[in-house]
Every structure is written in structure tokens, then in C-alpha cells.
């Protein structure tokens, strides 16, 4: 197991260095220099330009800049935002819990609904139930989620007035963040109605973000179940006279869940991409919105650091999934 882990890490390190080179290089390979790029169409005097080049260290040889950058990263220094002047890592850590909360709720929702739907569809293969589940899954999978979000806002916030349009909690409530998770913090604050407000803000973004993972998980669970249900040991279990529920729940599901676990792990990238759109639409103060805002503000220090941090998270989660998979299924360790 230890060797397996080492081997995965050996692949991960060059990939991470590559990711850092890309994040570092993208503003430098373009025609024009980074300062001119950041200035955009704003007019800047040559003196101010030279001063900024020096201040931000862009006048040094490129490999010195990269090594400095890499050295910074290894000590947790991702540079400072050009707009707010705050360290990129601080901003990231402040905003990340919001994205984490939203993503966790979305993944829980999609597993809790997607896995049972997939099982039911597989067990009742070919029935109208199977066809409608797969139909819904296909629609979910094809959904432009930014449009889906707008439709839900029209219905639930506009017509029914059940949910707020944006933010994480009503402005009426204020309490210092303890965990960064609004659901927990609002409960800890003890303020009446705060938890309700947090939940009502969370519902629509969670549904939107869960849509695609839910569809993918339902489809994957169904096909994994179908494969397992045709296996000999399932037939044996049936032949022994075990009740169908026990056969499906105990013998089949356990083995079918192995590929599903991998699918769930792979959804992390999908969730972070979805968070970009979902957070922008619902003004959810997480890292997706932060990245979009920084792109528009041409805050390339943030874009650069954010890219690296997000890619790092995805790689870390993939590593964890790989290791988990190796634990469940010893065959792939070799």
C-alpha cells in the first residue's frame, strides 16, 4: 500500500510543477508585458509602467521570477492581490469554506438521490420507472446550469417568493465566522431565525450545483448495478432463496458501489467548474465567484494563485480517491 501511495505521489509532483509553470507562464507568454495587460485600456505613463514592473518584479530574468514564485508557494506565499493588496492565500482561505459548504451539500444531495434512483432503475430495468429515471438523468446531464439557476430564481424567488435571490444569509443577522460554514455558525450564534435564513439561501444554489453530479451518479450507479446483477454470485445468492432485497442490498450493491465511489471523486472537478457559474449567479461569496471577479478585474496575481490552489485541491482529491480505490480493490494496486 505504501509503495502504491509513493508511486501516485511520484506522478503527482511533476504534474504539480507543470501546473505551477502554466499558472506562472500564462500572463508572460503573451505579447506585451504583464503590467500592460493588467492596465488594459487604461492609460499609463512610461514612468509609472517602469515603476510597476520593478515593484512587481517583472523586470528580472524569467527563470529567477519562476524560482522565486515556486519558492514562495512552497512556503505558503502565493503573492498579493493587485486590487486588494491582501495575500492571495488569505483571501482564498476566507472564501473557500463557502464553496466547500455549497459543494458538500450538493454532493450529499446528489448521492442521496442519485444512488437510490440508479439502483431502482437497474432493478426494474426496462420499466417505465427505469425509462423516466434515465430520461431525467439525461436532461440533468444536458442542462445548461446557468439557465437552470435563472429558471429556479424566476419560480421560487420571483413568483412564489420562497427563497432569497443571493448571498449566504440575510443581512439582519451578523455573527463572527467560527467554522466558516454558515449552517453551523448560524446555529452556534443562537440567533433566532438565523439557521432558517442560512438554509433558505443555500437551497437553490445546492440544487443547481447538484444537478449534473446527480445525473452522472444515477447513470453510473445504474450501469454498475446492471453489470453486477448479471454476475454468478448474485445468481447464486438468488438461487439460495435469499429475499430480493437482501440480494440487491447486500450482495450486489457493495460491489456496484466501487466504480460509483470513483465517479463521486471525479465530480469534484465538475463541482468546482459548476461553482464558477452557480456562485456568480447567486452572488455566493466563494472561490468560483472570486476567480470570475478577478478575471474581470484583471487581478492576475489572484488568477494565478487561484488556478494553482484549485488545481492542487483537485489533484489532492483525485489522490485520495485513488488511495481509497486501492484500499477497496486491491487488484489495481499493482
Amino acid at each position: 500500500m505504501f509503495r502504491f501511495l509513493l508511486r501516485r505521489l511520484a506522478v503527482l509532483i511533476p504534474t504539480f510543477i507543470g501546473v505551477s509553470i502554466i499558472a506562472f507562464a500564462f500572463i508572460r507568454v503573451l505579447p506585451g508585458d504583464p503590467v500592460a495587460l493588467m492596465a488594459g485600456e487604461r492609460v499609463m505613463s512610461p514612468e509609472r509602467h517602469a515603476e510597476l514592473m520593478r515593484e512587481l518584479g517583472f523586470d528580472r530574468p524569467i527563470w529567477t521570477q519562476y524560482l522565486d514564485y515556486l519558492g514562495g508557494i512552497l512556503t505558503g506565499d502565493f503573492g498579493n492581490s493587485i486590487v486588494t493588496r491582501r495575500p492571495v492565500l488569505d483571501e482564498f482561505l476566507t472564501l473557500f469554506p463557502a464553496t466547500m459548504e455549497l459543494s458538500l451539500c450538493a454532493i450529499i444531495l446528489s448521492v442521496v438521490i442519485g444512488v437510490p434512483l440508479g439502483i431502482v432503475a437497474a432493478v426494474r430495468r426496462g420499466s417505465w420507472l427505469d425509462q423516466s429515471v434515465m430520461g431525467f438523468a439525461l436532461v440533468g446531464y444536458s442542462m445548461p446550469i446557468f439557465w437552470w439557476a435563472l429558471l429556479l430564481i424566476i419560480l421560487f424567488s420571483g413568483i412564489l417568493q420562497w427563497t432569497p435571490v443571493s448571498g449566504r444569509i440575510s443581512l439582519m443577522y451578523f455573527f463572527p465566522p467560527v467554522t466558516g460554514f454558515m449552517l453551523i455558525d448560524s446555529l452556534l450564534s443562537g440567533q433566532e431565525g438565523a439557521f432558517r435564513s442560512a438554509v433558505s439561501h443555500l437551497v437553490l444554489p445546492t440544487i443547481v450545483l447538484a444537478t449534473i453530479p446527480l445525473a452522472v451518479i444515477a447513470r453510473q450507479t445504474r450501469s454498475a448495478m446492471l453489470e453486477v446483477l448479471g454476475e454468478d454470485y448474485v445468481r447464486t445468492a438468488r438461487a439460495k432463496g435469499l429475499p430480493p432485497r437482501r440480494v440487491v442490498g447486500l450482495h450486489a450493491l457493495r460491489n456496484a458501489l466501487i466504480p460509483v465511489v470513483t465517479t463521486i471523486g471525479l465530480q469534484v472537478g465538475v463541482l468546482l467548474a459548476g461553482a464558477i457559474l452557480t456562485e456568480t449567479i447567486f452572488s455566493w461569496p466563494g472561490i468560483g465567484k472570486w476567480m470570475v471577479d478577478s478575471v474581470f478585474k484583471r487581478d492576475y496575481a489572484v488568477v494565478q494563485g487561484g488556478l494553482l490552489l484549485i488545481a492542487g485541491i483537485i489533484m489532492l482529491v483525485n489522490l485520495i480517491v485513488d488511495v481509497l480505490y486501492g484500499l477497496i480493490n486491491p487488484r489495481i494496486r499493482h
Partner: peptide, 15 residues
């Protein structure tokens, strides 16, 4: 593949 596709596309287009 280590980047979320939409994020990478967004940054590339921005640049």
C-alpha cells in the same frame, strides 16, 4: 486535466 475545464477556458479566453 488538473484544472476544471470551464475555469481553464475562462482564464485562457480572458488572456
Amino acid at each position: 486535466l488538473a484544472f476544471p475545464s470551464l475555469l481553464l477556458a475562462l482564464v485562457l479566453v480572458a488572456v
